[in-house]
Amino acid sequence: MQWLRLMPFGSFMNTGSFVHKADPRAKLIFSATYLILAATSDGLRDILILAASSFVLILLSKLPVAYLWGGLQGLLPILFVLFVYHLLFNHSLTQAIVIPCKLAFMIVTTTTLTLTTSPRMLTQGLAAILHPLRYFRFPVRKFVLMCSLAFRFMPLLIEEIDMMFKSAQIKNARSGSASLRTTLQRRLNMFLALLYAVFRRADQLAFAMEARCFPGVERRADSLRMGWRDAVLIGFALTLVLIRIFI
């Protein structure tokens, strides 16, 4: 489960960088634009542009490259399987290179967003962006509250999954090789234990919120102010869109 280290949703690593000081709305706009461009890219030229953009974003965020590379090492088996599948069944070397690169760049970008933005600021920025949807009777307050709880509990869930897999590896090492039926039964038991842990944490959270008479009031985002860093990020996103259109 080493690949889980690449997705520390809800975690925050403050390095005081350019990206850290930017407004969360600008970072959300840039990330959404980048993900859309990555999902719709289909050529090697697009992959090179995405790679350069991701490299610039990592430099601006001052995140440790070794941390991101450690997570990518855990993703290498999945990327290799995608490469072999598209090479053998689609008979396309271009797609075999493009698809794994798209997945890696998308994960790195979303990880950079969560590492450079605290959960509180991320939910405030999301609430500010979705505010116009209130006129269409969209439950913005409930949706933002749900996202906020998900951001905060995701690191705990990932840590619990990692502990379960490590415990299962120790038990498998002691018992030796097992049959396919035994392996599937162990995976099913692990999945049921994970569901129980998730529901137990959700029940504890609901009980704590009810005991404190939580009204579900949305936090105001009046403290958010756009600056020159946000203009640079949004301009960076628009530049990527223009490059994609003309190239």
Rank of each mutant, 00 (worst) to 15 (best):
M1D: 00
Q2K: 05
L4F: 13
R5S: 13
S11T: 10
T15L: 11
G16M: 03
K27Y: 05
L28A: 12
T33S: 13
L35V: 08
L35I: 11
L37M: 01
T40G: 03
R45S: 13
I47R: 04
L60C: 05
S61G: 13
P64T: 00
G74K: 15
L75N: 07
L76Y: 06
L82A: 14
Y85T: 12
Y85N: 03
F89T: 09
H91P: 04
H91M: 08
A96M: 08
I107H: 07
T117Q: 05
M121T: 06
G125H: 00
P132C: 03
R137L: 10
F138R: 11
L149Y: 06
R152T: 14
F153T: 14
F153E: 13
P155E: 02
L156W: 06
I161P: 00
D162Y: 00
K166Y: 09
S167A: 10
Q169F: 06
N172W: 06
N172D: 02
A173V: 02
A173R: 12
R174D: 02
S177L: 05
S177A: 12
R181T: 14
R186H: 01
R187H: 14
V198D: 09
R200W: 02
R201W: 04
A202D: 04
Q204K: 15
M209T: 04
V217F: 09
V232D: 00
L233W: 05
L233H: 07
G235M: 02
A237Q: 00
V241R: 10
I245E: 10
